[in-house]
Simulated scan of single mutants.
Amino acid sequence: MRLLLPAVLLASVLPAAPAQAAAVQTIGTGTPASCTSQAVVKAVAKGGTIRFACGPKPVTIKMTATAKVRNTSRDVVIDGGGKVTLSGMGKRRILYMNTCDRAQVWTTSHCQDQATPRLTIKNIGFADGNSIGRRAEGGGGGAVFVRGGRLSVSNATFTRNRCEASGPDLGGAAIRVLDQYKDLPVTVRKSRFTNGTCANGGALSSIGVSWVVVDSVFTGNRATGSGANPARSGKPGGGSGGALYMDGNYFTVKISGSTIRNNRANEGGGAIFFVSNDDTGTLHITKSKLADNPSLGFETSGFPGIFFKGKGKPQITR
């Protein structure tokens, strides 16, 4: 049994799900001023479904602290209702979940492969997140950092997020993911990633993690490092994956109905950098458009904007 708190142990013998799994929290009382960073941080730590009542117009909540998921939560659903943007103000990461971080309660010795928390982000924006200087777990994740549990994203926007400007293997100006339960994929649906900058992965980045990306748009993102990975002599490293940077051994990336346009990498893969170190990983792209994604260093012949090292070749359909 994972959880050590007596109340949780007691609840585990009951047929009903834990209370926080079903809890619904509402941030705000109907006005923009009532929707605060403090309320967001508190709600995310408590878990359950989080909704917003900030008035009839779109609102930006300026985050004065990073919202952190507690690992005792089963489900955390952040639903902005299509009207809320969380802003890191160019100063901080916006959202953090790490099942191996003891400060967020360490619930199992198998922290890298636990089923919960399940984090769902939907109908919300993340703008001006910044994880520069946050090098724990290798850094990255300017707006959102996730390790362990499960992550899904739908109908979300990520704008002007950033992380370290150089360095090998770190990345993900919008989202950085390490580990998912049973190696199940991160899902991203109907989302937009714009003008992110990071050493690698101007939008998404992961190590050993699979992805399913559907009906999404990536534009204006930049991989700003130089020297690739491992870094060439005299260079700080990075610069690959203008939009997407994926590394590891076996993993899969499936992209469908999406547009990846006007992204850029100083090194490899102006659109997508995909390296499966043991050549077992696969990349599938279906009914999508990739255009004007310059790779200033290198890319795979015949696949503009893509650097691929994996099983066979990238599988491209329509």
Rank of each mutant, 00 (worst) to 15 (best):
Thr282Phe: 00
Ile121His: 05
Asp278Arg: 12
Ile27Gln: 05
Gln104Arg: 15
Gln38Ser: 15
Leu170Met: 15
Thr259Leu: 03
Thr187His: 01
Phe52His: 09
Phe274His: 07
Leu3Pro: 01
Val212Asn: 09
Asp169Asn: 14
Ser276Phe: 06
Thr66Met: 07
Gly140His: 13
Gln25Asn: 04
Ser152Gln: 08
Met89Ile: 06
Arg118Ala: 10
Leu95Cys: 04
Gly310Glu: 10
Ser34Leu: 04
Gly281Val: 01
Thr194Ile: 15
Leu178Ser: 04
Ile285Ser: 03
Gln315Ile: 15
Leu296Thr: 02
Arg261Met: 06
Ala22Val: 07
Gly141His: 10
Asp128Met: 11
Thr64Leu: 11
Ser216Ile: 00
Tyr96Ile: 03
Ala136Val: 09
Thr120Cys: 00
Val44Phe: 06
Gly47His: 12
His284Lys: 10
Asp179Ser: 14
Thr36Pro: 06
Val212Leu: 01
Thr157Tyr: 00
Ala291Gly: 07
Thr99Asp: 01
Arg150Ser: 11
Lys182Cys: 00
Asn200Lys: 02
Arg135His: 08
Tyr245Ile: 00
Gly138Tyr: 14
Ser152Ala: 13
Gly310Met: 08
Arg318Cys: 06
Ser205Trp: 06
Asn266Arg: 14
Gly171Asn: 03
Gly125Ile: 00
Ala22Ile: 08
Cys163Gln: 03
Arg176Tyr: 12
Gly133Pro: 04
Asp75Ser: 09
Pro6Thr: 12
Thr197His: 11
Ser12Phe: 07
Ile50Asn: 02
Trp106Cys: 12
Lys313Glu: 12
Ala53Thr: 07
Ser301Thr: 13
Ser109Glu: 12
Gly196Ile: 08
